[in-house]
């Protein structure tokens, strides 16, 4: 299996606190992966490093078939290279309509001049309808997204990620605060997405992770504690100690 993203030997320190410690991680082009770990294990910082928000003190982050380093790229460049990120708290543009949100995310040229003269064509409209159907917001397309429910905002954000057509999705606690039926919808969205692209889900909820039915990486104190199937890692003594021994 070829590798889409390879993180190796990465460390980062904030004011003497080692948030990530010699972390290594790999994921293939069409793979679902769950990352779990207690608070402060470095899950969010890991995402920050991959998406370019935080620059590590040492280590390498290699991306794609051409093996480019992500460390020298800006957040926007990384996003254009095909890495999409969903934040823990739903962040959509609340003052704009669902359609405008999706249109903005749609894969197109991103430079100011081209955007200025951009005009949405029929294929764009089709794609927006398609995405809206997928995330179940067809009825809500013309609504201001600030008026959506919490779960709908989460889906809209996932929809925006999909609109970007990324090769890797980083999803931070997608199921937080959702009703059981909403969770199910979210699970199917992610599983569907993982068929064609890599998806990394950071999640606390073991039940949700179990439904994803994928390989699990356990982070602890900034490095990988265990990796494998969910049943495999939950039987790992070190993992049990970390989760229960706190």
């Amino acid at each position: 299996m070829s590798t889409l993203l390879e993180v190796s030997g990465v460390s980062v320190t904030f004011d003497g606190f080692r948030a990530i410690n010699n972390l290594s991680f790999q994921i293939g082009p069409a793979e679902m992966r769950a990352i779990i770990g207690p608070n402060g294990a470095g899950k969010t910082t890991f995402m920050d490093i991959v998406t370019g928000k935080t620059k590590p003190d040492e280590g390498r982050v290699i991306w794609g078939d051409e093996n480019v380093s992500l460390l020298k790229m800006s957040e926007a460049q990384i996003a254009r290279a095909g890495i999409g990120r969903k934040f823990q708290k739903p962040t959509v543009f609340e003052e704009q309509t669902v359609r405008a949100n999706l249109l903005m995310a749609l894969k197109h040229e991103r430079s100011p001049l081209q955007v200025l003269f951009f005009k949405a064509g029929p294929t764009d409209a089709e794609r927006v309808e398609e995405l809206a159907a997928e995330i179940g917001l067809t009825e809500q397309l013309e609504r201001i997204s600030g008026e959506l429910s919490h779960g709908q905002k989460q889906w809209l954000e996932i929809g925006m990620l999909l609109a970007q057509d990324p090769r890797l999705l980083l999803v931070d606690e997608p199921a937080a605060g959702m009703t059981p039926s909403e969770r199910e919808h979210t699970t199917s969205l992610l599983v569907q997405a993982a068929k064609t692209r890599a998806v990394v889900v950071v999640e606390h909820d073991m039940e949700f992770v179990r439904r994803l039915n994928c390989k699990v990486t356990v982070l602890h104190e900034g490095s990988v504690l265990a990796e494998g199937g969910l049943d495999h890692v939950t039987q790992n003594q070190k993992v049990i100690d970390v989760y229960l021994g706190r």
């Binding site: 998406t51 928000k53 800006s74 957040e75 926007a76 460049q77 996003a79 254009r80 999409g84 990120r85 934040f87 962040t91 959509v92 543009f93 903005m104 995310a105 991103r110 430079s111 100011p112 955007v115 925006m160 970007q164």
Partner: peptide, 10 residues
């Protein structure tokens, strides 16, 4: 930040 992660050069 969201705009940036959508790939736009803010």
């Amino acid at each position: 930040a969201r705009v940036r992660f959508l790939g736009y050069s803010v």
